[in-house]
Amino acid sequence: MSSRTLLTEAEIATALAELPHWRRAGIGDSISRTAEAADFPAAIRVVVAVAEQAERLDHHPDIDIRWRTLTFVLSTHSAGGLTSLDFQLAALIDQAFDGV
């Protein structure tokens, strides 16, 4: 299966169960995580770490920065919904938060 193939509802549920910080609004085509860093510089370090991984994967999140609060939204727009790339990047975003 291609990393840009839409996941089934069962596959999405399984993937979300492995990523407890991530949420899906209803049966939407995206997942999101909001978290706070210790301070603004730490939040920017998270964003930089995520940017490097996003470039490597050629898969880029929507990012909202509000002082030290970051919200990441993931969806594979070219596929029209959620793919394994979204969950792969979600795990890497979790690692970026763990690293600051």
Rank of each mutant, 00 (worst) to 15 (best):
G99H: 14
E55D: 08
A90I: 13
H21R: 14
L6H: 05
L85W: 03
R56K: 15
G81T: 02
L89P: 01
A43F: 12
A10L: 11
T76K: 11
S75I: 03
E11G: 03
F72A: 01
L7R: 01
G28F: 02
A96D: 00
V50M: 01
L57H: 10
L19K: 03
R56D: 06
A54T: 06
H21G: 13
A10Y: 04
D94V: 13
R45E: 06
L16G: 05
T71V: 02
A25Y: 07
V100A: 06
R23P: 05
R23L: 10
T76P: 04
A10T: 07
A38R: 14
E55C: 00
S2K: 12
V48R: 14
G99A: 15
I65D: 05
F72C: 13
I27V: 08
Q53G: 03
H60V: 07
A15Y: 01
I63W: 03
T8M: 00
V47K: 14
G80M: 03
L16Q: 01
T76D: 06
A43V: 13
S75M: 10
F87H: 00
V100H: 02
D64F: 11
R4F: 08
D94L: 05
L82N: 03
I27Y: 11
A49V: 10
Q53E: 12
E52N: 10
L89T: 01
A25K: 15
T5I: 06
T71W: 08
L6S: 09
R33N: 05
A10N: 09
A37D: 02
Q53R: 15
D94R: 12
D62C: 13
Q88W: 09
